[in-house]
């Protein structure tokens, strides 16, 4: 950029800053009726107007600093939190990132019209600056939403991992762990750790691992199941795997998987029967049954 161009850009940005300051009230009043503000601040209109003012002031400060294309401009700082809250609210209403982006884009019109009315002779460069400023605002909003989405995805993955293994106490020292869905490496690891912790917590001597809800059993899943059974045994608890559907039994045979010494039963009921018989035979000190 030449010195002349830089000078013109700066002057244009200054014009924009002045416009936003002078016409702040009018812009805020018009924005308050646009969906991006109106749909978020539903209690009173004053609330919406106040939020609009905060955005106008912030944009004015950014223009004043001449950094209209800079996402990191300090002028944006005061409204960052507010924008995060507003976009989150719009997203909760079911709007996509693109739809919110369009709503933010609609804010530009009011400012452009007032610029044309107030300063027709300087409009050229100031218009460029104003358009850039609103483009930056849009990028900021979209970026905020993407970050928020990313966090939601991470949170949900984490929740899925944690929800993955409910441990059900069936009887004194007898617990059942129903497995549901896909078992990838990360989930299998969490399942195994939770199950072994449950053995300690419930003083369990027998664990029924029910795989009725597991969608596919491949060699990886079979391997994880066997490792879980072996670890439980080392801790002094016996495992029985139940819920082996006919299709899964066939897959296991066709893949040539050897479940080795693992006890298996077709249904949870069969496994429970086995467990209760096993318990009788274990010559445990007689304790009150629940």
């Amino acid at each position: 950029m030449t010195d002349g161009a830089t000078g013109r850009a700066r002057a244009g940005a200054k014009t924009v800053a002045d416009l936003l300051r002078r016409r702040g009230e009018q812009i805020a009043q018009r924005w308050a009726d646009l969906p991006f503000f109106q749909a978020v601040f539903t209690v009173t209109r004053d609330e919406a107007v106040e939020a609009c003012h905060a955005v106008v002031d912030s944009l004015s400060a950014v223009a004043e600093s001449g950094r209209v294309d800079d996402l990191e401009a300090p002028g944006f700082q005061p409204i960052r939190e507010q924008l995060i809250a507003m976009t989150a609210s719009r997203a909760r209403s079911g709007l996509s990132t693109a739809q919110v982006d369009r709503e933010v884009g609609a804010l530009r019109e009011a400012a452009l019209e007032l610029l044309a009315a107030d300063a027709p002779e300087e409009a050229g460069e100031a218009r460029v600056q104003l358009v850039t400023l609103f483009a930056t605002l849009r990028v900021m909003v979209v970026d905020t939403m993407l970050q928020e989405n990313q966090e939601i995805v991470l949170r949900q993955r984490q929740q899925l991992l944690e929800m993955a293994t409910p441990v059900i106490k069936l009887w004194d020292r007898l617990v059942a762990v129903p497995l549901i869905g896909m078992l990838d490496s990360a989930r299998s690891q969490v399942v195994m750790e939770n199950l072994l912790e449950a053995i300690v917590e419930h003083k369990a001597t027998i664990v029924i691992l029910d795989i009725t809800g597991v969608s596919t059993v491949d060699s990886l899943v079979a391997h994880h199941l066997m490792k879980t059974v072996a670890s439980a045994r080392l801790m002094g608890a016996e495992c029985v795997i139940s819920g082996i559907r006919p299709a899964i039994a066939q897959t296991i045979v066709q893949l040539g998987l050897d479940l080795g010494p693992v006890t298996t039963r077709a249904s949870l009921a069969d496994a429970l029967e086995w467990a209760l018989e096993r318990r009788e035979g274990r010559d445990l000190p007689t304790r009150g049954n629940p």
Partner: peptide, 9 residues
């Protein structure tokens, strides 16, 4: 090792 942003413990 199963980094999903937050620890698996």
């Amino acid at each position: 090792p199963y980094s999903v942003g937050h620890g698996v413990r």
